[in-house]
Design a protein around this nucleic acid. Structure first.
Lengths: 251, 251
DNA sequence: CGGCTGCTTGATTACGCTCAAGATTAGTGG
DNA sequence: CCACTAATCTTGAGCGTAATCAAGCAGCCG
C-alpha cells in the first residue's frame, strides 16, 4: 500500500519501493523467498519511469534481455500473425510477469503495450538466471511461475477450442474478477482497461459479438456496464456460465 | 540409433541407453550440457518399462513428482472440462517433455496417455530441481524448454482464435511434418498415431469436419491418406495454407 | 461371423462473422 | 470552453462456415 497512495502526486522516490515493501510481493517473483534473499533480487531490478498509455514495453523482434513485472497499471501482449494482423495473447495485471516466452529464442516474439499509465520492474534476465542458480528458492519460484503460465495457456486453449462466445466472455470476466480480488480490489466492480476490440481479439471473437454479448449480459441481469466500468450483479451465474454449460441450461 | 533397432526383440538392457548415447539428446533436456554433467543427469533418470497403447503416463489429480521425456512412441495430454468431456492439449513426440504444467500446483492438471507403444524417461522433479541448482547449464535448458512451451501454446491460441478449419488442420500437419523431420524422419510421409477424434478435439473442430477436410485436401492434391498414414504431396501449398491466407487465395 | 469402434458422407441448422450504418465518446485545436 | 474530427462502440440485416443430427461404411476384435 505504501507505494500507491492515490492522493499523493507521483513521486519517483516512492516508485523505488523495494521488493520487500511492495504489496505485490506475494504474487510476484519474491513469493516464498526470505527477507535477506529478497534484497539480492532487489539489487538487480530496475524500476523504470512509468509508461504512458500506448507506449511499448518491448516490441516483437527486439533482442531479449529482461523480463518485466507489472507494478501498477496494465499491459497487453500480442503477436503479429503471418498476414500482419495482430493477435492479443494476454492481459497482464500488477504482480504478473511479462516476456517469459522470449527466453527460449533470445528474441521477443510478442510485443507488449501499456493499456493505461503503467509502471514496471525490469528484471535483467542474465542476472536473474545467475541469481537463481545461487538461490534455490528463486529458481523454484521462477519455474513455478513459468509452469503456471503454461497451465493458464492450456486453459485458454480449452476456452478457444470448446467454448461458445458467451462462455468465453464470461470466463474472461471471471478471470479478471478473480485477479482483481487477489489484488485486494472488488471482484464485482472494476475497470477494464482494454478496448472491446482487444477483448474480441483475445477471445477469438468479432468486436460486434463482444458488444452484443455485453448488451445481452446486461439484459439478463448478469452485470451492468458503463463503458469500461463493469459491475457484476450475479457473480454465481456468471461463474457457472464461464464454467461450461451448453447442455445444462441455467434457469 | 543404438537403442531402437527394428529387427531386435525388445531388450531391457537396450532400453537403458544413457542420455549421452541417446539419439534424442539434442532435442531433449541434455541439449547444451557437457558430457560429464550429462552423466549426473543420467543418474537421476529412471527408464520405465514401455507403455502399451492406451496406458496412462499419469492422470489428472495425481500428485506431481516427476516430468517425463518421451523416448519412443507418442503421447497425448488432455484435461477434463468442468462438464466432464475431454480436451486434448497436446501430442508429444520423442524428445519432448510432458508434465511441465504440474510444477506450479504440485498436482497433475492433465492426464497423459500413450497413443501407441511408448517408452519414456521419468525425471523425478525434486532431484531435477536440486541438480539444476548445481548445474547452470541444466537450469538454463530447463527454463528454455519451458519458455518454448509457452511460445508454442501462444501459437496454438492464435490458431484456435483466428484460423479457419482448413488452416488449423494444415497447421497441425505442418507441425507434425516439421517435428518428424527434426527427428530424422520423412517430413512428407508419416503415421499419425492419434485418432481423428483426438485431432478434432485438439483443433477445436468436430470429427466430421476433420474427416471432410482430409477428403478435401486429398481432392485438392495436397496429400494422400490411407487411414492413419499420411503422404504430403504439396508441402509448399500446405505450408501456405497453414500460414494464414483467408485474404490471398492460392490459385 | 457379428458386434464394436472409428471413419466418412449427407442434410440441416445455428452461431457468430461480415458488411453497413448510426451513436457515443475522446481527443484536438481554435 | 466549445466545436470538430477521429476513434470506439453499438445495433441491425444477411450470409457462410462449421456443428449437429443421422446413416452408412470399413477395419478390428473376440
Amino acid at each position: 500500500m505504501a507505494n500507491l497512495q492515490p492522493g499523493k502526486p507521483l513521486d519517483m522516490a516512492a516508485i523505488k519501493v523495494a521488493c520487500a515493501n511492495c504489496n505485490l510481493h506475494n504474487l510476484c517473483l519474491p513469493l516464498g523467498i526470505d527477507t535477506r534473499d529478497i534484497e539480492r533480487l532487489d539489487d538487480i531490478i530496475n524500476r523504470k519511469r512509468p509508461l504512458a498509455r500506448g507506449e511499448y514495453l518491448f516490441q516483437a523482434g527486439a533482442p531479449f534481455h529482461a523480463i518485466y513485472a507489472i507494478r501498477s497499471g496494465s499491459v497487453k501482449s500480442f503477436t503479429a500473425t503471418e498476414d500482419g494482423q495482430e493477435q492479443v495473447t494476454g492481459f497482464h495485471l500488477p504482480g504478473e510477469l511479462v516476456g517469459l516466452d522470449a527466453i527460449s529464442s533470445d528474441t521477443h516474439n510478442c510485443s507488449a503495450r501499456a493499456l493505461e499509465t503503467t509502471s514496471v520492474c525490469e528484471i535483467p534476465y542474465p542476472q536473474l538466471e545467475e541469481l537463481s542458480a545461487l538461490m534455490p528458492s528463486l529458481q523454484r519460484q521462477l519455474l513455478r511461475v513459468m509452469s503456471r503460465e503454461i497451465l493458464q495457456d492450456e486453459h485458454m486453449m480449452m476456452l478457444l477450442g470448446r467454448k461458445a462466445a458467451d462462455e468465453r466472455l464470461a470466463a474472461m470476466l471471471m478471470s479478471m474478477s478473480n485477479r482483481f480480488k487477489q489484488r485486494g480490489f472488488s471482484p464485482r466492480e472494476f475497470h477494464l482497461s482494454m478496448s472491446r476490440n482487444d477483448i474480441g481479439n483475445y477471445l477469438g471473437l468479432a468486436v460486434e459479438t463482444v458488444s452484443r454479448l455485453f448488451t445481452r449480459f446486461q439484459e439478463d441481469g448478469l452485470l451492468e456496464t458503463e463503458r469500461k466500468h463493469v459491475r457484476i450483479l450475479d457473480l454465481a451465474r456468471l461463474s457457472v456460465l464461464a464454467g461450461a454449460n451448453r447442455i445444462s441450461p441455467d434457469e
